[in-house]
Design a protein around this nucleic acid. Structure first.
Lengths: 125, 125
DNA sequence: GTATCATCTCATTGAATGCTGATACGATGA
DNA sequence: TCATCGTATCAGCATTCAATGAGATGATAC
């Protein structure tokens, strides 16, 4: 059985990973791995809608994964810590070996009528 | 704009992080960081229900994060790769510095009536 | 002061998620 | 063969999420 302190730690860790666990947010973070960008630049790079980007940036900001800096009427964002990039890099290297399992995961992308045949598929594309 | 190949890579990465982005799954992985465990042992360690654990293990297995080995009528699980543990460790170290932001994140745990004042809060405790 | 640009916030909505209880399956030993 | 143990699957439900469109805010230029 877990102690409550451990549970709290888990919840926070889970939040962190979940912050990383969305293609839109990940594409934003990926873009920022190259260096600071304005919101407009992020919109252009990712191809996401403006309000969508803003929402995700708000989430990432509140999670402490990115930092915002106002410059005139522009806002520039950058990763808050090198380890954010490290996490993504580690994930990439891990995926290079395990990708087949994730790509071909039969738990994903199952047509709706059968989709609940197996529980707990992670959100798909 | 993102190329489709990049998008696919992002989706897979996001899946990986999302696999890590649930307290239940994280507690299972955390337990397995100490070494291989049977399903029963995982149930006991985590305090989760049997079907819940089984479902999450199925997800983790399909994602390639854990590996199962049948031994008689027991099934033993272990982490598929050291980097799975590395990811969690990096997250812990990152959280040690950024935790305040995640803990006090005003986007989380806002009472229902106000909860949608800000979008995209990550699932809370 | 008004128009405009960059960004943020809000409410809604369809879809995905996680949990539970019941049930099915496969292996073992009586 | 039958009962039992360990594990996996299924169906249903309540909750949560991500995307959108419209509107609000704040800064700058005219």
């Amino acid at each position: 059985m877990l102690l409550t302190a451990e549970k709290a730690g888990l919840a926070v860790k889970a939040k962190l990973f979940r912050g990383l666990g969305d293609p839109s947010r990940l594409s934003i973070l990926d873009a920022l791995r190259g260096g600071p960008l304005t919101v407009s630049a992020i919109i252009e790079t990712t191809g996401l809608s403006q309000s969508n980007v803003s929402n995700h940036l708000g989430c990432l900001r509140d999670c402490g994964l990115v930092v915002a800096e106002q410059e005139g009427r522009f806002v520039t964002y950058h990763l808050s810590d090198d380890r954010v990039g490290d996490l993504i890099a580690t994930a990439e290297s891990l995926l290079a070996d395990v990708a087949r399992g994730v790509y071909e995961c039969t738990r994903y992308n199952i047509p709706r009528t059968e989709s609940r045949r197996k529980g707990y598929e992670v959100r798909s594309t």
